[in-house]
Amino acid sequence: MTGFVSIRNLRKSYGSFEALKGIDLDVAKGEVVCVIGPSGSGKSTLIRCINRLEGFSPESKIRVDGIPVATGRALARVRAEVGMVFQSFNLFPHLTVRENVMLAPRKVRGTSRADAAVRADQLLARVGIANQADKYPEHLSGGQQQRVAIARALAMDPQVMLFDEPTSALDPEMVGEVLDVMRDLARTGVTMIVVTHEMGFASQVADRVIFMDAGQIVEQGPPARILSHPVEPRTRNFLGAVLNH
């Protein structure tokens, strides 16, 4: 069986350092997968390969909805189907919040300005910041900026959403509002792959938790089992360190 997102033998090296050592992973349509692990374990690199923000070894194969993640036109199709939310938001500072959300539908899908604006306002309402649409990103809090970033990614109606430590750059009091938006999103049936340190979110929302270390998947399974009864010593050590700090 191959998944909606299918990864085979994913390898990636920086010089002599092997960041990813042959990852196999299938994610089903509508599944919510949380990837956890120590920093430097390759979890961010893994999801950045799915839309090829990172190149990878030619023997590795990634497919999204059957489309190979390659170069050129196929890559453009994959990127239009895969939304991404970054740790540092990466909103466009020269555009208003609404324009941030409108840009890709207009330029990539050819949506009219009027239609894109209507859709942007719907999405901004959905993430709870409809009243900030005319502001520039710098005037928003971190939590609000990250919610705009989620709306911006959703504007392309992605089949898959990638989250690369979406709450790691936020002040603690803003983490909740972003996780709430992600929780709502998970209920709508979007396929989600989330790199996170939020164990609470993983245990409540994920269908599956993947623990990575040193460029490999060490252990995976339902959150209740992985987070409460890990089998591998490395998983136990990591969870012990994270949960008891």
Binding site: A80, G83, M84, S88, L103, A104, V108, A153, M156
Partner: peptide, 18 residues
């Protein structure tokens, strides 16, 4: 211009010239 701006654009599907 920060690398994140290029990455966000690429992730949204914008072409290089766009």
């Amino acid at each position: 211009i920060p690398k994140g701006q290029f990455e966000a654009s690429a992730a949204l599907g914008l072409s290089g010239p766009q």
